[in-house]
Every structure is written in structure tokens, then in C-alpha cells.
Amino acid sequence: MHTDASMGPGKRWLTVTPPEQPDLEIALMAIDEGMMFKKDTAEKMRELVKAGTFGYAVFECNDLVATYEELTARGVKFKKPPTKEFYGFEALFVDDSGNWFSLGEKKKED
């Protein structure tokens, strides 16, 4: 957790950061009426997220197979296991709202 600032009930700025990359802040936000969204926009947005429309974040790890095994053991759902693509070695995981993320592997230095 990086910052948890509250402006009152349901009004929150919450960010997390990977311990090894503390300058990267990821903001977490519920898709609810009020902050950012009107009621009908929030409903549409939730549907779109649930349908897997959004997948805009890319993470990298040192070892994709090991990370895949670990995250799977921790209950993370993958929509694509580690796969060699022409552009690189990649897996895709999904969060519990429907957002999906690419997980790649850092190039190893020989």
C-alpha cells in the first residue's frame, strides 16, 4: 500500500506499489456511482469490465513460468498460460472484476 487518503465515506484515493518498484503507483478504484462515474455510466462500465473489454496493463517478471506457477497456486486465474509468441513470452491473467493483464518476462542478461 502506498497512499490511502480519504475525503469522506466512499471517497478514497488508494494506491499500491510493487515493493521492488516503489516509484510505480497503481490506483485502485471501485466502479461506483459518485467518484468519476454517474449511475448509468458506472453500470455500463462495470459490464464492460466484466466482459473483459479492458486489458491495458503489462507487467514483467524475472521468470514467467515460476511466476505463473506461484500466482496459480495463490488462486489467480489465467486466460492464457505462458506462451511463446512471436513478440515474446507472455501469459494473461484476469482480476476478479474482469480486467486482464499481460505478464511478460524480462530479457535475461547472458
Binding site: T3, A5, M7, W13, M35, M36
Partner: peptide, 20 residues
């Protein structure tokens, strides 16, 4: 500090969009 002055820790664009 966060409890006393949360806006110091919230990006201005986000705060403005929410009318804070």
C-alpha cells in the same frame, strides 16, 4: 499528514474531477 490534509496526497486532476 494524510489524515489532516488528504488533498496534499491526491492528484489535483482527480480531486478536481470529483469536485473536491
Amino acid at each position: 499528514e494524510i489524515a489532516a490534509a488528504p488533498l496534499k496526497f491526491i492528484p489535483g486532476c482527480f480531486a478536481a474531477q470529483n469536485g473536491w
